[in-house]
Design a binder for these strands. Structure first.
Length: 533
DNA sequence: CCGCCTTTGAAGCCA
DNA sequence: TGGCTTCAAAGGCGG
C-alpha cells in the first residue's frame, strides 16, 4: 500500500501534501468561501446570461465579485442563502461535519459494493446519490438537529429545481469508497434495503426518491460510525441500490475506519449495487433485478462485468469475462463535475454535456484553491484506493476499450474546424465569460494536485488548458486586467497550510456547496447555449 | 445506434 | 524528460 498511512487520521498524506495553487496571495479568489460560491454561481449565470456584456467590463469586477445586480429573485435568493447558512450552522454546531473532510479517509472498503470503476457497475453514480451528498446531514438519526436543517433545504430546493435532483446529483466526494473488488467476497446486502420503486424513466427499480425516503444519509458522527447505516447506502437514485456494507463484508486490507460523515457521503455515492456483488442472481434482496446491472452507462464498456452472469444483458464477451473492465479513477475535475453538473443543469436549461462541461471547466478554474484542493485530495485518495483495490490495474488496460478514437487533432489542428466550431457554439459568450474565470486565475496554474505536490508536476493543467481551450480561454495567462498577478505557475504551497481550513468539516466547502446549490436553484438560468453563430 | 462533443487531470506511450 | 494520446463522466446531437 502505497500510501496509506497507518494513522487513519490524516493519513493519506494529507499533511505532507502540497498543493500548488497559484499563489497564496491571491485573495481575490478566495475572498471568502461564501463569496466565492456566490461568485461562482453568479459567474456562471452572468456569463451565460450576459455574455456579451461582460467581456468588456468583466475583467476587474469579476475578480472581486461579479454578481448580477438585478436579480428577479433576489429575495428568494437571499432567503435561500440564509436558509442554508442557518442550516449549515446548525449542522456544524451539531457536530455534523465535525470530522475533517478527509478525516483520515477511512478507507472503507466495501467489499461488494458495486464498483464504480467496474464497467458494469457503471451506473452513474451521480444519479444515485446526489441528494445524499447534498444533504448528508439530514436524516441523521443521531442528530435531530440536523434534521431541521435538512428540511428546509430539500424543500427549498425542490421548489426551484425542477429537474435535477435526481440523477445527476452525486456528491463528488463520494467516490472514494466505492471501489470494490470483485475479489472481495460479496457480502450480503443488508436486509433493510428500502423498498424499491421503479424509476419512471428507466423502469429500473430504485429506492424511493430521497425525498420519499430519507434522502439524507446518516451522517451523525455516531451514527456514522455505524457504517452499516442502511440509509446511507441506500440512496439509489436511479434504480441503484446502495447496499449497506455487509457485516462481514469488510475485508479490505485497511481496518475499517469509522465512517464519518464525509466518508459516508463518499461511500454512498459510489456504492452502487454493482459493487456489491450482487447475489449471484444479481437480484436485489427484494428480488428486483439490480438496476446496476442494466445500467445504461454500460454502453461504453459493454464488455466487462463483474459478474457477467448476472448482469450483463449481453453475454459478456468471453474475453473480457474474466476481466471486468475497471474504470479509471476519477480525477479531481471529474469529481467536481459530477457534483456540479446537476447544479449547472438545473440552472440552465442546458442539457448537453459538452456545453455544461465548458461551464464546469470555467467554474473549476474559478474555484478557490481550497475547494479545488479538496477535490484533488479526493481524487488522490481515490487513486490510492483504486490502486489498492486493483493493484495490478493499469490505465493501459483500458486503452482501446473505447472505440472512439476521438479527434486526433485536438486543439490546434482542428481540421476542419469542426471541433472548435462546436466549442464556440456551446459557449460563445461564455467563453468570454470564461476569461473571467481564468482571471480569477485560480487554478489556471493548475494547481498541482495536492498530491501533486507530492508527485506531480506542477501543472498538468497547463498543458491542458492550452490544448484544450481553444475557445477562449486564453485565459490562463491571465488576465488582461492583469489582475491576476498570479504568475502562471505559482509555487505550490504546502498542502498542510491549506489543510486546516480546507479540510475542516463543515466548512466552507460544504457551505459553498450548499450555497451554490441554493443559488442555482433559486435562479434558473435559461441559457441559450447555442448562439448559433 | 454509435461516436462526437466538451472539460480537466492522470497515466501511458513514444521519441 | 517532454509531448502526445487515451480514458474517466455525461447527455444531447449528428451521421
Amino acid at each position: 500500500m502505497p500510501q496509506l498511512n497507518g494513522g487513519g487520521g490524516d493519513d493519506l498524506g494529507a499533511n505532507d501534501e502540497m498543493i500548488s495553487f497559484k499563489d497564496e496571495g491571491e485573495q481575490e479568489e478566495k475572498i471568502s468561501e461564501n463569496v466565492s460560491a456566490e461568485r461562482d454561481l453568479d459567474d456562471v449565470k452572468s456569463s451565460l446570461v450576459n455574455e456579451s456584456e461582460n467581456n468588456s467590463s468583466s475583467s476587474d469586477s469579476e475578480v472581486t465579485e461579479r454578481r448580477p445586480q438585478t436579480r428577479p429573485d433576489s429575495e428568494s435568493y437571499e432567503k435561500t442563502r440564509d436558509y442554508f447558512s442557518e442550516a449549515l450552522r446548525r449542522q456544524q454546531d451539531g457536530g455534523f461535519f465535525k470530522s475533517p473532510h478527509y478525516p483520515g479517509y477511512p478507507f472503507l472498503m466495501i467489499p461488494d459494493l458495486t464498483n464504480p470503476y467496474l464497467s458494469n457497475g457503471s451506473l452513474s453514480p451521480s444519479a444515485r446519490t446526489y441528494l445524499q451528498m447534498k444533504w448528508p446531514l439530514l436524516d441523521v438519526p443521531g442528530s435531530a438537529g440536523l434534521k431541521d436543517s435538512r428540511s428546509p433545504t430539500p424543500g427549498h430546493l425542490s421548489n426551484k429545481v425542477p429537474v435535477v435532483q435526481h440523477a445527476h446529483h452525486v456528491h463528488p466526494l463520494t467516490p472514494l469508497i466505492t471501489y470494490s473488488n470483485e475479489h472481495f467476497s460479496p457480502g450480503t446486502p443488508p436486509s433493510h434495503l428500502s423498498p424499491e420503486i421503479l424509476d419512471p424513466k428507466t423502469g429500473i427499480p430504485r429506492t424511493p426518491h430521497p425525498s420519499e425516503l430519507s434522502p439524507y444519509y446518516p451522517l451523525s458522527p455516531g451514527a456514522v460510525g455505524s457504517i452499516a447505516h442502511p440509509l446511507s447506502w441506500l440512496m439509489p437514485q436511479q434504480g441503484q441500490h446502495m447496499y449497506s456494507i455487509p457485516p462481514g463484508g469488510f475485508r479490505h486490507p485497511y481496518p475499517a475506519l469509522a465512517m464519518n460523515p464525509s466518508m459516508s457521503s463518499l461511500v454512498s455515492s459510489r456504492f452502487s449495487p454493482h459493487m456489491v456483488t450482487p447475489p449471484p442472481h444479481s437480484l436485489h434482496q427484494t428480488g428486483i433485478p439490480h438496476p446496476a446491472i442494466v445500467s445504461p452507462a454500460i454502453k461504453q464498456e459493454p464488455s466487462g462485468d463483474i459478474s457477467p452472469s448476472i448482469k450483463s444483458p449481453v453475454p459478456a464477451k468471453k474475453e473480457e469475462d474474466k476481466k471486468p473492465h475497471i474504470k479509471k479513477p476519477l480525477n479531481a475535475f471529474m469529481l467536481y463535475m459530477k457534483e456540479m453538473r446537476a447544479k449547472v443543469v438545473a440552472e440552465c436549461t442546458l442539457k448537453e454535456s459538452a456545453a455544461i462541461n465548458q461551464i464546469l471547466g470555467r467554474r473549476w478554474h474559478s474555484l478557490s484553491r481550497e475547494e479545488q484542493a479538496k477535490y484533488y485530495e479526493l481524487a488522490r485518495k481515490e487513486r490510492q484506493l483504486h490502486s489498492q483495490l486493483y493493484p495490478g490495474w493499469s490505465a493501459r488496460d483500458n486503452y482501446g476499450k473505447r472505440k472512439k478514437r476521438k479527434r486526433e487533432n485536438k486543439p490546434d489542428s482542428k481540421p476542419e474546424g469542426k471541433g472548435k466550431k462546436q466549442c464556440v457554439q456551446y459557449l460563445t459568450s461564455e467563453k468570454m465569460c470564461d476569461s473571467p474565470a481564468s482571471s480569477h486565475g485560480s487554478m489556471l496554474d493548475s494547481p498541482a494536485t495536492p498530491s501533486a505536490a507530492l508527485a506531480s508536476p506542477a501543472a498538468p493543467a497547463a498543458t491542458h488548458s492550452e490544448q484544450a481551450q481553444p475557445l477562449s480561454l486564453t485565459t490562463k495567462p491571465e488576465g488582461p486586467s492583469g489582475q491576476s498577478n498570479t504568475p502562471i505557475l505559482t509555487r505550490p504551497i504546502p498542502f498542510t497550510s491549506l489543510h486546516p481550513s480546507m479540510l475542516s468539516p463543515p466548512s466552507p466547502f460544504h457551505q459553498a456547496l450548499h450555497s451554490h446549490h441554493a443559488l442555482f436553484q433559486s435562479q434558473p438560468l435559461s441559457l441559450v447555449t447555442k448562439p448559433t453563430e
